[in-house]
């Protein structure tokens, strides 16, 4: 079957990718966009290594057809931050030991970005419930929960201490529809020395 050209909006950039109807989003990202940060671990929706955000919500890249998300806003691990300014979750996964072999890390980070978007102060049980679709074979999850908890704290501290003009003009309670908020904490916070 012939390939069709589709436009994927990934990390706020436009990619024209030639794909077949049966190509998954994970495949299109890795081979079409050259974004290999999204991993394929089981290819059957169990391990969550391929988790990306589609309009701010986590999605399994291995069980999502690329054509299905044409025109949607896709975020991958590469889009969270540049080298100078890591997203607090990325920093926390490294600093708290939440990443060992690292293969599951992009998926865990993306799942956690979505969690912290809707729950600024999750309990450890809430974190566990949120990450229960991602599989880690190295850490026993303890330091992953640490990392998410720590990042949430960091984000809260930064939100408190450095209100941006944008934030100050926001209504106190954001309603559904603020999905664009996903993942911007990293850009909002100042770079820290030595990461």
């Amino acid at each position: 079957m012939s390939k069709t050209l589709v436009t994927l909006n990934v990390n706020d950039a436009t990619y024209e990718v030639a794909i077949k109807p049966q190509d998954t989003l994970a495949l299109a990202l890795r081979d079409g966009c050259g974004l290999t940060g999204t991993k394929i671990g089981c290819d059957m929706g169990t391990c969550g290594c391929c988790t990306v955000l589609v309009d701010g919500e986590p999605a399994l890249g291995c069980l999502t057809l690329a054509l299905e998300v044409e025109g949607r806003r896709i975020q991958t691990i590469e889009g969270l931050a540049g080298a100078e300014r890591l997203h607090p979750l990325q920093r926390a996964f490294a600093e708290c030991g939440g990443s060992q072999c690292g293969f599951c890390t992009p998926g865990f980070v993306m799942t956690s970005v979505a969690l912290l978007r809707t729950n600024k102060a999750p309990s450890r049980d809430e974190i566990k419930a949120a990450i229960a679709g991602n599989l880690c074979r190295c850490t026993g999850y303890a330091k992953i929960v640490d990392a998410v908890e720590h990042a949430a704290e960091q984000i809260r501290d930064e939100d408190d201490s450095v209100p941006t003009p944008n934030e100050m003009s926001e209504k106190p309670e954001t309603q559904a529809g603020d999905k664009d908020d996903a993942g911007i904490h990293g850009r909002r916070q100042p770079a820290t020395a030595g990461r």
């Binding site: 988790t51 999605a59 229960a132 991602n134």
Partner: peptide, 12 residues
Amino acid sequence: LDRLASPLIRQT
């Protein structure tokens, strides 16, 4: 729901 499959499966 909260113990159905996994949170990622429930997303889609």
